[in-house]
């Protein structure tokens, strides 16, 4: 599943994770920490939508 940032368009792909930000491949979006921020624009998790 992929989730896209509503503000800047950055995509979180659960299969790929985000290794450069310390998030392992396969990490579910719901399992990202509550204080997770979009690495591109800094908004919170609730600004993401399922792609």
């Amino acid at each position: 599943m992929k989730y896209v940032c509503d503000v800047c368009g950055w995509v979180y792909d659960e299969a790929e994770g985000a290794p450069e930000y310390g998030i392992a491949p396969g990490t579910k979006f719901e399992d990202l920490p509550e204080d997770f921020e979009c690495p591109l624009c800094g908004v919170s998790k609730d600004n993401f939508s399922k792609e």
């Binding site: 503000v7 800047c8 591109l40 624009c41 800094g42 908004v43």
Partner: peptide, 9 residues
Amino acid sequence: YTAPMVHWP
């Protein structure tokens, strides 16, 4: 001071 999305990241 970073200013992400004002109006680019």
